[in-house]
Structures are given as structure tokens and as C-alpha cells.
Amino acid sequence: MELVCLPRLPRVAVCGGTHGNELSGVYLVRELLRVQRETSEKEKEEEDKKSMSVLTVLANPKAMQRCSRYIDTDLNRCFTHAILNSPLSDKPPYEMVRSRDLNALLGPKGSCEAVDLVCDLHNTTANMGLCFISYSDCDWICLHIFRHLQRQMPEISMRYIHFDVSNRESYSLDSIGKHGFAIEIGPQPHGVVRSNIYTTMKSGVQHMLDWVHFFNSGTTFEGGLVEVFTMVKNIDYPRDCVTCSITAAIHPKLQDRDFCLLHPGDPMFQTFSGETLRYKGKEALYPFFINECAYYEKGIALSLARKKHVMIPTVRVQTEQEEQANKLGFASEEEE
């Protein structure tokens, strides 16, 4: 199998509280910060010998304090190239300011100073298990980390979701790293922390950091096939054409059945008068984000994805010589 050598990942960021009411990430990052604080100087020296530094970030402290998703606007939609680089108004929304601060801390997006990997922690009210959400289906680092977690946590149902959006248009916090993904775990109501979800997230993050350490230390990771769900489209609730309020709920036969193939003609909604509305698409697709709380206002009742398999190559870290050679190559390319 093909071997791909990739640059080291010396700087990793773990972020929580990007949405202030998704509490697993909030409490996990707080816990990581507490452990960092309580780690003695000597242990810190030991840590330094490790192959990387880990930056822990609480992304939206004001929203966390209020236990709401955001203050003025959804922070996790504020990281497009356009938003980060357009001039700020006189009274900018809090999250617009915050996204710039975070871009300065972890980015700048698209630059070689950006941290190597951003992992942003989220929860959903949908029954999605643990999902990676990434903008790429060919980022071998993200896909290898995903496969590592799948192997280390076989009892957890896990999927890799791919949003097919270019780097300039990508809008979420994890897009400012050289590599990045969100870990989305559910079901968990917003404003609640459930021990099972927290524990899953904690082990996921630990295995992610382990993988980066192994990778940086020279371990070779065998390639293979990875199942990837590529987002196709969103479906909104049926709504009253005057008031825009919803006129149906997710059908009981669809509720909680994220990633169970939805066929044309399958029940999708149940109106408040008891009528069943069916999926009218022509292609069977995989539903996810079914009945996510925060998406009512975005006009999304569920999303649909197509499943495919991606062959990922064997990877290992570049040796110092390779890295040097690459940098030179990169520089000369830029000059051209």
C-alpha cells in the first residue's frame, strides 16, 4: 500500500464551549485545564518531553456563562475567510470579535502559523453517537485519528461526516487549524451534562491525543477503507406559510434513527393532526442531526448523507530531512 509521509503535529488545540450550552465540551475542557493547573512543575517537564503541546480553549465564555448557544450570533459560523477578514462594524456582534481573537490565537486560518490540529467539542440532541465532522474526505490525519478511535472504542457507534465545503467557505472553529474536525456526541439535551456522554468524549479526546503522540514519535499507521458520510442536503419542517411555525414533528418512526437508511416513501413527519408525511426524495439516503434543538431556527429538521468508502493510505511522520526538503520545495513553489 502507498505510504504517505506527513509533517509533524507539534501543536494541538482542544476546544469546548463554542456553543455555551453544549456541556460535555465545557466541562471536559475545564477538567483538562484543572489537571494542567494542578500538574507539578516536574511533571510539566516530563510533559515537555512529549512530542506536542496541547492548547485547551473555552471558545465562547460569555455564552457558557449564560448557558446559551451564543450571545449575538452562532460563533461556529463565524470562521469563513470573508467574515474573518471583513472590516468590523462599530458595534460588532460579540461572536464576530471572539472569532477574530480565536483566529489570532489558533490561526491565522490558512497560514503556516496556524496550529496543526483543532478538535472542537460539541453535543447534539440527535441520537448520533460519536461523530467526526470534517470538511475533507482526504485529510489523512483526521481520517486516521477517526479510525484509531473506532478501534480503541469499539463499543461506541462512530461515524465520519464530511461537509463538502472549500477551506475559504468553511465556517467552523475547527477550520482554522491546518487539520481540524468537530467531535459531535449525542443524544444529550443542551444545558445538561450526562455522565455517559462526558465519559465517551473524554476517552475520545484522550485517544486522539495518544494518536498524535504516536504519530509524532514515528509510528506507522496502516491504511485501509473508511466509511464516510457525505452531507447531501437539509430538510426543513413543514411550516405554516403565514406564521412560519412548524406544523409537524419528526415522525416517531424516524426519531432517534440517525444513520438508518431512509428510503423514498418512508415516514418522515407527523402533522399535529396526525397525518404522516413521507420522504419524497428519489434516492435512499442516511439521515442525521434528526431533531437537533439548535437547528429549528436554521430551518433544518434533519440532514441527509450519502455513504461511501474512502481508501486511506498508510501514513507516518516525515523525518527531519524530509521535512526540511519539503519546506525548501514549498518555498521554491511559492517563489514560482
Binding site: 440532541t125 443524544p187 444529550q188 439535551p189 443542551h190 444545558g191 445538561v192 412548524i246 414533528a249 419528526i250 415522525h251 416517531p252 426519531q255 407527523q270 399535529f272 431533531n291 434543538c293 439548535a294 429549528y296
Partner: peptide, 13 residues
Amino acid sequence: GPQPQGVLRSNIF
């Protein structure tokens, strides 16, 4: 319950 805040589940309804 159980139903998350801000969510409408048909069984609970």
C-alpha cells in the same frame, strides 16, 4: 419527559 428543552418529540407530545 424526557425531552430536551427547545425540542418537540412526537411521543412526548
